[in-house]
Simulated assay, not measured.
Amino acid sequence: MARTPEAAPRPEAYYAGAYWGPRKESPEDCALHTATLLNRLAECDPLLAHWYKPTKSRALAAMVSLMPPDMPTLAEQFRRGVNRERGGPVIEQLGFSFWFDNGGSAGDCAALRITSGAYSEAVPNYCTLTLPKRGPSAERMLSVPVLPRVVGSMASAWDADWALATSWEHRETLPEGTRTGTFVGWVTYLSLRRGRVPPLPAPVRIEPLEGKGTLVILTPERFTATNPEHVALARHVREVLTAAGLLQPVTP
């Protein structure tokens, strides 16, 4: 009797995120950070050169491009993304939110979620980028040096305290209760406000970023949660950086 071929394992899903503490900003401030980010991402990979306003229709004809970035348009999107209780006033300390994507197809799409201008200590400000799962775009972007450039662009545009890129599967291997700012991904950024990164073991690479912080790149090949050596390396580097006082929660 012929054996049924085993299904190929699903590829890990990766994301990048930049996070920072309480910082009161206006919709115009948020728009300026976003415009800087979009221009810098466009230089990292062709997939990140196209972004569209959120619409009810996915038809190409209905999409309105956000590139090149237009400040009044971006500011208005943030202004619409205020937080409020149903029927109640705006909750100013929770800032503004704006979610949009690049109009790609399933598996070959990038999406940005931004919450900024928040000055509550309950939640961090953040900018997260969902990365493509498969195809030529994933092969290009889920690599060194492209991914460090993406993380660096996000960290610099938002003047983040902490940023990283890793897989969701790796995130799920971390201890329960792990908080934003307290773990290490495939690529990790640490602001100099947190201190200086100590020497780390090979194959880890340390790169300065524009005098603002440091990028820590764990492996030159694609980091995966299914590789025990990768997971062990991330755990060891986390222990070293924690001992150096560099991995603290972004919010108290």
Results as ranks from 00 to 15, higher is better:
residue 154 M to E: 05
residue 106 A to M: 11
residue 36 T to P: 00
residue 141 M to S: 02
residue 244 A to R: 00
residue 87 G to H: 07
residue 55 T to I: 03
residue 86 R to E: 12
residue 78 F to N: 03
residue 77 Q to E: 15
residue 223 F to I: 04
residue 218 L to I: 12
residue 142 L to C: 08
residue 2 A to Q: 11
residue 240 V to R: 01
residue 177 G to F: 10
residue 238 R to C: 07
residue 84 R to N: 10
residue 85 E to V: 14
residue 179 R to K: 14
residue 41 L to E: 02
residue 212 K to V: 04
residue 47 L to F: 10
residue 16 A to L: 06
residue 27 P to I: 11
residue 187 V to D: 00
residue 105 S to T: 15
residue 14 Y to N: 04
residue 94 L to Q: 11
residue 47 L to R: 08
residue 56 K to A: 13
residue 85 E to H: 12
residue 186 W to T: 04
residue 159 D to Q: 15
residue 179 R to T: 10
residue 184 V to Q: 00
residue 248 Q to Y: 00
residue 37 L to P: 03
residue 30 C to I: 06
residue 169 E to A: 15
residue 157 A to H: 07
residue 36 T to Q: 14
residue 8 A to I: 12
residue 53 K to W: 06
residue 40 R to T: 14
residue 37 L to W: 04
residue 108 D to H: 12
residue 20 W to A: 04
residue 91 I to C: 06
residue 218 L to V: 08
residue 105 S to G: 11
residue 214 T to A: 02
residue 252 P to S: 12
residue 90 V to I: 15
residue 63 M to N: 05
residue 94 L to D: 10
residue 94 L to P: 01
residue 156 S to Y: 15
residue 14 Y to Q: 05
residue 131 L to F: 08
residue 59 A to R: 11
residue 158 W to N: 04
residue 185 G to P: 05
residue 29 D to P: 04
residue 95 G to R: 03
residue 140 R to W: 02
residue 247 L to Q: 02
residue 195 G to C: 03
residue 190 L to I: 15
residue 234 A to H: 05
residue 159 D to A: 15
residue 5 P to E: 12
residue 26 S to C: 10
residue 219 T to F: 15
residue 161 D to Y: 01
residue 173 T to F: 07
residue 93 Q to R: 13
residue 137 S to M: 06
residue 38 L to D: 05
residue 159 D to H: 14
residue 78 F to C: 05
residue 70 D to Q: 14
residue 25 E to R: 14
residue 108 D to I: 12
residue 14 Y to M: 09
residue 245 G to P: 03
residue 61 A to N: 07
residue 248 Q to C: 00
